[in-house]
Design a protein around this nucleic acid. Structure first.
Length: 299
RNA sequence: ACGGGAAUGGUGCAACGGUAGCAUACGGGUCUCCAAAACCUUUGAUCUUGGUUCGAAUCCUAGUUCCCGUG
């Protein structure tokens, strides 16, 4: 029998964690998280990680698996998740993946084209130069060193430009040359299920969850992470806003309101990403609906 | 109640009597190694009334609402 991965995705705060837990218990299997923030053991309340009780019920991979000091990326996730799913398939026919990080879902399902790893010195040099000289400098560099990318890339987006630049400086080749535009084939089925709710309901859930995070002690958690505020892992909704408050830039009430706004915007971007994926089957976030889709697909 | 001030997009602000603009939110979107990131983008407004003027957000009249001070 061919193995199957049940992928549960959707916007933040819609109830993915709880549903994945039920599905995993139903099939007596394990979960791989597909969330670019819950993998960090130092982040807890602000990233809505499963509770300790939930983690005991079902084995979760890519939860608390990394430190905020480690570089985690889509490529790292792809390799990690493929390794773990093979471990799961050695014991079970079904695995559950859950998370809302669109790029990680894509990396897992379709693969990332292999680009040689970048010398950290080159990366750092580019970042420093960009910080000192601005986007015009960056555009100029890419224009001169990778004309092909400059012609079609997002030339107003510093992150994309820096990526293109670090690749051409490390390898002498354009980032575009590494792109095969071919999806990798996986030797297992992937059942993609998207959870959705009418927007007012989702917004209500987001607002309530942010308030709950504050009651659980988000302020304290973020305070303890202040020394790490510049790490990539901390460029995260719920943390940046409270850092701003701790530095006296905004009041706590303003920080909380900003967290709600930024979380809504994040949820919207997630929906935009996943709606484009025609393989996703949409349903409301309840167990019966999800399991019905799964059973239909497993036949 | 009296005196003073203010009314411009959902919110916060700008505009010498001469094309109502900026920020942000909302809506839509992009995205193959930072993705809870980064970036692109549509719509939307001069409180009401009458007047002055070739022309009013801007000046004048009356009204309404709000703010500050005094009581």
């Amino acid at each position: 029998m061919k193995k199957s991965c049940i992928l549960i995705t959707g916007p933040t705060a819609i109830g993915k964690t709880a549903l994945a837990l039920q599905v995993a218990q139903y099939f007596s299997t394990e979960i791989i998280s597909c969330d670019s923030r819950q993998c960090f053991k130092e982040l807890n309340i602000g990233v809505a990680k499963p509770t300790d009780a939930e983690l005991e019920l079902v084995y979760h991979h890519f939860i608390n698996s990394h430190s905020i000091q480690q570089p985690v990326s889509a490529a790292v996730f792809e390799q990690y998740a493929l390794e773990k799913i093979n471990t799961i398939f050695a014991a079970y026919d079904i695995a559950v993946m859950v998370g809302g990080t669109g790029l990680y879902v894509k990396a897992f399902c379709e693969g990332m084209d292999e680009v040689p790893s970048i010398d950290p010195a080159i990366r750092q040099s580019i970042i420093t130069n960009y910080n000192n000289n601005g986007i015009e400098w960056l555009k100029e560099q890419v224009k001169n060193q990778d004309e092909a990318y400059y012609a079609i890339g997002e030339i107003l987006n510093p992150q994309r430009l820096m990526r293109a630049l670090e690749v051409v400086q490390s390898t002498g080749k354009s980032l575009l040359e590494f792109h095969t535009n071919q999806k990798k084939q996986r030797d297992f089925n992937i059942i993609k299920i998207g959870l959705e709710l009418p927007r007012p309901q989702l917004i209500d859930r987001i607002n309530k969850r942010v308030d709950a995070m504050m009651e659980e002690g988000l302020l304290k958690e973020v305070s303890s992470l202040l020394p790490f505020k510049t790490l990539n892992a901390l460029q995260t909704v719920g943390y940046q806003e409270i850092f701003a408050h701790l530095q006296g830039d905004i009041t706590l009430a303003e920080a909380i309101e900003q967290i709600k706004i930024n979380t809504r915007q994040y949820a919207k971007r997630q929906m935009t990403w996943f709606k484009k994926d025609e393989a996703v089957q949409w349903c409301s976030p309840n167990f019966e609906d999800v399991i019905a889709i799964v059973k239909k697909q497993l036949k």
